[in-house]
Amino acid sequence: MRLSTVTVLLALASGSLGAGIRPQQIKNLVTFGDSYTSVDWSANGGTPWPVYAAGYAGVNLYPYAKAGATCSNNLTYRPFPPLSESQVPAYLAEKANGTVKGSSQDTVYTLWIGTNDLGANALLTGNPGSKASLSQVTDCMVNWVNTLYQSGARNFIFQNMIPLETTPIYAATSWTGRYWTAQRNTTEWSVFMRELVLSGNELTKLKLRNLAPRLRGANIALFDSHSLFADMYANPKSYLNGTAPTNITGAVDTCVYELNADTPSSCVVVQGNDRDSYLWYDELHPSEQASRIVAREISRVVSGKSSRWATWL
């Protein structure tokens, strides 16, 4: 009996019991991030995952993610609307004027960012306008939770970075494609990207675990996008359901460039139901079928159900 009591107390102390979102609690989904989450420019050639997720969960969608975004242009500059200086201020302004509906209890906020912070023309290759360290970038990511908490938000889903070294652009077997046409050592890129992603994900996890106890009343889920995509890569037949053989190394929309060329030498676009056999849409972005898998799992969290890939901190 004593052992059983101690076990229960330890579970309660760890937050593993009674944490998270209740069924039918959430009415609104607010999304932030980059092209992986953007709905005004679809990176998968079809329907973005937030649209699917909102439909699956039966909630209202308020999308703020923008293609090309980084966490902060003060850290890793790109000429696109960043999370900190554009997306969050836009949300706060629309919350203040009543455009965004919902309360702190019936709204959940998601963030999926980092691909552009770590990638080409940023931490991977360097950039004259980018002077940040990985530590600073992960601070920025985690600070998103604290900023929204101060505005009244209480329910969060933090989506970590996928294994970018498996995407066509960063794989050791990559080709010269639309997102990088200069000379590069593909093996070096792939190894370095793997280390950046693994280190970045570990840093955000530790920083979120440190932040969570200080945010009274907050529910923070860490959604392990990395493990989900690693599983899709390792077991594609469990996820990809198109009419062609499963493909984890190519892409639905593929273009090949000569070195330093401005236009492609050749392009191939997969058509019809064969598209759902691919993990990647193009050299950088997940396919629509992969997006449906993300949407399915996120919608489970939003609906107060368990997901293999989500942990409440």
Rank of each mutant, 00 (worst) to 15 (best):
A11F: 12
I298E: 01
S291Q: 11
W280R: 08
L148V: 07
S299F: 03
A153L: 08
V108G: 05
G217V: 10
V137S: 05
Y36C: 09
A96V: 05
V108H: 06
A54E: 04
F192Y: 13
W189M: 12
P163R: 14
S133D: 00
F80E: 10
Q159A: 10
S86C: 08
T147K: 14
C255P: 01
S307Y: 11
A53H: 03
R296C: 02
A11G: 11
Q136Y: 00
D262L: 14
G20H: 13
Q289M: 14
L124A: 07
P236K: 07
R154D: 01
C267M: 07
G68R: 08
A153V: 05
A172S: 15
A218P: 07
S227V: 08
A172I: 00
T249L: 06
Y91F: 15
G98M: 12
P163W: 11
G250A: 09
G102A: 06
V142R: 04
N143P: 08
D253C: 07
D106N: 15
H285C: 00
T76Y: 01
L198P: 03
V269T: 15
W175C: 04
E188A: 15
W309C: 04
V88R: 13
Y56C: 03
I298Q: 08
E94A: 12
E195D: 05
D139R: 05
A53D: 01
S104R: 13
T204K: 03
S4I: 14
T110M: 01
T176N: 12
S86T: 13
L10S: 13
T138R: 11
N235H: 15
T173L: 01
P81C: 03
V8D: 04
L313W: 12
S265Q: 14
S199C: 02
K131T: 05
T166C: 10
M232H: 09
T31G: 00
Q159F: 05
P236I: 11
G272S: 11
A122H: 02
T187L: 13
N247A: 02
D106E: 06
V39D: 07
Y56G: 01
G250V: 12
L83G: 00
T147Q: 14
A43K: 06
Q105S: 14
D106V: 04
T7I: 12
F80H: 13
F158N: 02
N73L: 00
S174R: 15
A65V: 08
W180M: 06
S291H: 14
N44C: 14
L92W: 13
S104I: 09
Q289S: 09
I113N: 01
S225Q: 07
I220D: 00
G55C: 06
K27F: 03
K66W: 01
A69T: 10
L134F: 01
S265Y: 00
S306F: 11
S291L: 03
Y36N: 09
H285S: 10
R308I: 07
V6I: 14
L208C: 10
F229Y: 12
T254G: 00
L148T: 09
K207A: 05
S199R: 14
L92M: 13
I220E: 00
G129L: 04
A57N: 09
G15N: 05
N210R: 15
G55E: 05
L259C: 00
T311W: 10
L284M: 14
T99L: 02
S38A: 15
G242R: 11
I248M: 03
T110G: 07
G177S: 13
Y64E: 04
L12Q: 10
G98E: 05
Q25W: 06
W189V: 13
A90C: 01
D282S: 04
G20V: 12
T166E: 12
H285L: 07
S306V: 11
T166A: 05
